[in-house]
Design a protein around this nucleic acid. Sequence first.
DNA 1: CCCTACATAGAAAGCGCTTGCTGTGACGTT
DNA 2: AACGTCACAGCAAGCGCTTTCTATGTAGGG
Lengths: 348, 348
Amino acid sequence: MTVTLADVAARAQVSPATVSRVLNGNYPVAASTRERVLKAVDELDYVLNGPASALAAATSDLVGILVNDIADPFFGIMASAIQGEIGGPGGRAGGERLAVVCNTGGSPERELTYLTLLQRQRAAAVVLTGGAIEDAPHKAATDAKLRKLADAGTRVVLCGRPQAPETGAVALTFDNRGGGQELTEHLIGLGHRRLGYIAGPLERTTTRHRLEGHRAALAAHGIGEDARWTVHGQYDRRSGYEATLELLRRDPTLTAVVAANDSVALGACAALRDSGLRIPDDVSVAGFDDLPFSIDVVPALTTVRLPLAEAGARAGRIAMGREEAPAGGIAVVRGELMVRGSVAGPRG
Amino acid sequence: MTVTLADVAARAQVSPATVSRVLNGNYPVAASTRERVLKAVDELDYVLNGPASALAAATSDLVGILVNDIADPFFGIMASAIQGEIGGPGGRAGGERLAVVCNTGGSPERELTYLTLLQRQRAAAVVLTGGAIEDAPHKAATDAKLRKLADAGTRVVLCGRPQAPETGAVALTFDNRGGGQELTEHLIGLGHRRLGYIAGPLERTTTRHRLEGHRAALAAHGIGEDARWTVHGQYDRRSGYEATLELLRRDPTLTAVVAANDSVALGACAALRDSGLRIPDDVSVAGFDDLPFSIDVVPALTTVRLPLAEAGARAGRIAMGREEAPAGGIAVVRGELMVRGSVAGPRG
DNA sequence: CCCTACATAGAAAGCGCTTGCTGTGACGTT
DNA sequence: AACGTCACAGCAAGCGCTTTCTATGTAGGG
């Protein structure tokens, strides 16, 4: 039914071994023979059996990219950059690798299961993107899995995720804390003293780090914390909308709202507008990430730009062994404050 | 080194066959035996060798999702929905399948190569999303590949892509033409007579269909075409920005700009604003797709909502054989006009 | 002109798993 | 009491490829 290596061999009048060598090109084969084989491959429309070759060679060309939410451009952009370097077909990489992105949906179980599936497929490399879950048992399980993958020869790279010591994984972490701090300092510098903060889900490292940065800035300027000023939610627009209404309810005198990311900030803007407040005249709004749309909303969003594409590309190269891992297995990627129209000094 | 089925069998004092059956669960195994095996699996931390089992069983649990641009939410949303139904780990599907999304970047070659790679992996199903390329040779090559995949037992589903007759693929196509027409009719109904159109890349079916709908609406109302009113570009913001400036240069009296999609519309808005024109007072702007951010820009974008998530979910179910394919192998998914603030009657 | 060296090609042993077919006791039947 | 039935478990034959080792023909070297 399906064409196999043996069929090609028969047609080209050579042994299967020779065909395999022509296809893999890591063994001398006479030019004339190679040509004959290639011709047979073409005529028979032969397609290598991936599983069989992976089994025999004990390696596969699969590279896994784990993302928390593929519908979120934050991950889309990173995934795109990673995949661009992995080569996938057409990449300058040459060796054809199948870069696949796996959507965990932020669920620890799915993350673990995907990791197992990838391990099962003997993936050549795995890149995990975005914040990690801070649940201890889950972290232990994930780390153990990463360790096992690394031991089995799979290259593991963390992109935009904190380092996981002892796992053998290379980490490119974002300086969420520093970025958050810089952003809030900017607001404080403009005179804001009552700042609401819309944080992401509690158990994510990203959430915690950004919030810590925010608080560090407040503390540095002697601004006392008010528990009412922080609300947790998801990393999406709707959550930002609702959280903002809640914030306004708790303290209508806030002069600025800092959001955990740009999508949340968008929701915040909508909520403020719907509440009859002008941005930035009545309330300033800031986001995080600097996703493409952030410059297009009106007023344009003040935010912290994360070099998503650059970091992703680097992670991809490291995963392919095409770039050396940073010293100590970790590199911190800094964000850049983008000051735009959504922020101004407090009214009055 | 690595633990194999045989190791588990030895430890559980059974034959490899039994272990395999316990793991696959499609053959009666005594409860006590099963338990013993499971215990051994656990103790040994055994992970099935994917390639080996795929080879032996002649099937794999890989499902490929091809997207044109993973950084674009349009695809991210569909991919997310598809993956949700594929099950991936954690999905209600049960059978654990590895849903992988492959980013073609809109390149015909990459699309083809990914298809080959998927074929090589003996993928269980493949879902192709978004517009197809209209280049004849490429279409022929793709169709042939799809046909081959289908013949090999891979379920092929097209989501948001025109039908590919003779390939055995099921298609869920978006009614881009109808949506485009409805949108433009709405503008005409408001009194617009001079409408600029920013189309997508020439060779995409999506581009052509939307444009055809637009023109059909113009024709239906006796509005003559003016070649100056159509500009082609990419499906991104920047392209929209530049195209709008070009449009304005060609005819400053336009009262409306219809964009190929929401991202382009965003760029158009920015260009208009930068040109000192108010939206919708001076110029109305409309998009297509209704991506999440479209409701957040100011003014909110009038656009055609495509049920991306619903269509994706359905495509996923069909790919999994969990929902019957539509009669004739094709279903047309209609868009819905969303009238919002970015459109008003022409000034004066 | 014989011998060593090299360049190729083939033979064959797996890689780790699935599965059709073949036992083998324990039961239920007549 | 002899025998057909089940319910399980094991045997063993691959699945299609890679790769080590070996064979062969040819080209130099002495």
